[in-house]
Write a protein that binds this DNA or RNA. Sequence first.
DNA 1: TCTATGTATGTAATATCATAACACGTCAAG
DNA 2: CTTGACGTGTTATGATATTACATACATAGA
Lengths: 172, 172
Amino acid sequence: MPHDHAEACPGCADPSAAFAPHDHTHCAADVLARAEVLAGAAGARLTPVRRRVLEILLESHRAMGAYDVLNRLSAEGFGNQPPVAYRALEFLEEQGFVHRIRRLNAFAACMHPGESHAPVFLICRTCQSVAEAAGAPVRAAVEAAAAGMGFAVERTTVEALGLCPACAGAAA
Amino acid sequence: MPHDHAEACPGCADPSAAFAPHDHTHCAADVLARAEVLAGAAGARLTPVRRRVLEILLESHRAMGAYDVLNRLSAEGFGNQPPVAYRALEFLEEQGFVHRIRRLNAFAACMHPGESHAPVFLICRTCQSVAEAAGAPVRAAVEAAAAGMGFAVERTTVEALGLCPACAGAAA
DNA sequence: TCTATGTATGTAATATCATAACACGTCAAG
DNA sequence: CTTGACGTGTTATGATATTACATACATAGA
């Protein structure tokens, strides 16, 4: 999971620090840059609307509803109808730049574009922040359980609701 | 997971047969009876609407939307406004008699009331049937991943989309 | 028994999330 | 320079869910 800039961007680089305060401006810029490269390589076009949606989601480690994104877009002169937001979000999700958080009916920027994917989402019920944890071991357990029933897993969604370190500390 | 009636109710009794054809009338009646006992023990009232909602969901191993349930209810003389369905579903979910399938914005009867809970849901994308698999190992993997990030898990949602044995066979 | 209290149900209105269908503009390939 | 694919914008509608309030109903305490 760690990418380059490990020193400059602890929050991005180290999964165990995802909830810790970090230089988020850098963190977001780094992810955006990576997304641009990946989109180019995939022959996908990161147009102004799409790019802006990704930037908006990258402003925080929170999930945002499609209409929240849309409000931001329309305030900036883009279209103000739902499909504008949904289409950009759908594109970004297909590219793996954005994740859909089903529990919240919302979307969050992927902090590890181009990597493993299908992570586990850790959703803080107090501050609404969303972090990604490695999903491979969890998916393996799901596949094991499914195999015993003859079920062929194609996609898994794993979302955990709870308290992030900061909020757990504040509660205590 | 297996309960009594193992011979009479293979579909209910054996997780590995949940997708297999079985005496579903019996299966549903058995789950309903267990729910009644559990509700009584918990001091919760399984009123006519609530009971009927559970029966409706037990008619199949599929997930139903709240409005589908509501249509059935109103056709039978119960209220015809959304809160009627949502309240009953919420109650049943709190009692552990119904699960919410977030991926589908829908609800499915729990086939193992009173047992472990927080299972993994296996959702067939072709026939829409939903089965429950043991969730404990998966939850353990989630908690392990979360612990490494200092996140305290309270609830987890695990949903796998794929093909049930019957539909996988038909596809091949 | 009566009444107070909590709980369940019914209803109206509205909020929130999401998609279908069509029009228009841009740009690159033929 | 035209065609076709794609992206964006807009209208309209559909699907999911909740808030707020009114009414009934059960049951425990006076």
